[in-house]
Amino acid sequence: MHNPDARRREQASIAEPGVATTSATQEFRDYMALSPAEKIELKIAEQMKKETELQSLAALNAHTQGSALSAKLTVQLAANGQDAENRQRKTPLA
C-alpha cells in the first residue's frame, strides 16, 4: 500500500539546505508531519501523563496533610483534655 502522507512527512522533516534548525523548529516540523491519528494518540498520552502526575501529587498532598492534620488534632485533644481537667478541679465535689 502507498501511504499518501509519506511525501508530506518527508518534506516536513527536511530542513532547507544551509539553514540551521533549532530543536524547537525541528519539533514543530516533526509534529506537523504526524497524521491526525498520531496527533490524537500523542494528545491522549499527554493527558494520561498529566492525570498520573496529578494523582501522584494528590496522594502526596493527602499524606502530607494527613500528618499535619494528625498533629493538629493531637494538640486540640490535648488542649481539650487540659480544659476538662481544669474544669474538674474548679467544680466542688458534692
Results as ranks from 00 to 15, higher is better:
residue 82 Q to R: 11
residue 5 D to C: 12
residue 53 E to P: 03
residue 79 A to H: 09
residue 29 R to H: 12
residue 29 R to S: 07
residue 34 L to R: 12
residue 84 A to K: 14
residue 42 L to S: 13
residue 39 K to A: 02
residue 83 D to Q: 14
residue 14 I to T: 09
residue 17 P to R: 03
residue 78 A to K: 09
residue 70 S to T: 08
residue 11 Q to P: 02
residue 47 Q to I: 08
residue 27 E to L: 02
residue 4 P to R: 02
residue 94 A to S: 07
residue 5 D to G: 14
residue 34 L to M: 15
residue 66 G to A: 08
residue 43 K to E: 14
residue 58 A to C: 04
residue 83 D to I: 14
residue 28 F to A: 14
residue 20 A to H: 06
residue 51 E to L: 15
residue 16 E to D: 14
residue 38 E to F: 01
residue 63 H to S: 13
residue 48 M to C: 11
residue 7 R to Y: 12
residue 16 E to I: 13
residue 27 E to Y: 04
residue 12 A to K: 01
residue 92 P to A: 01
residue 62 A to P: 08
residue 26 Q to F: 03
residue 65 Q to H: 08
residue 53 E to D: 05
residue 63 H to I: 03
residue 60 L to D: 15
residue 91 T to G: 00
residue 82 Q to G: 01
residue 47 Q to K: 12
residue 28 F to R: 11
residue 10 E to I: 05
residue 82 Q to P: 02
residue 94 A to T: 05
residue 84 A to V: 06
residue 54 L to W: 13
residue 82 Q to S: 12
residue 41 E to T: 06
residue 42 L to Q: 11
residue 88 Q to T: 01
residue 56 S to L: 08
residue 23 S to E: 14
residue 11 Q to I: 09
residue 86 N to T: 08
residue 63 H to V: 07
residue 83 D to P: 06
residue 43 K to Q: 12
residue 53 E to N: 04
residue 17 P to L: 12
residue 84 A to G: 07
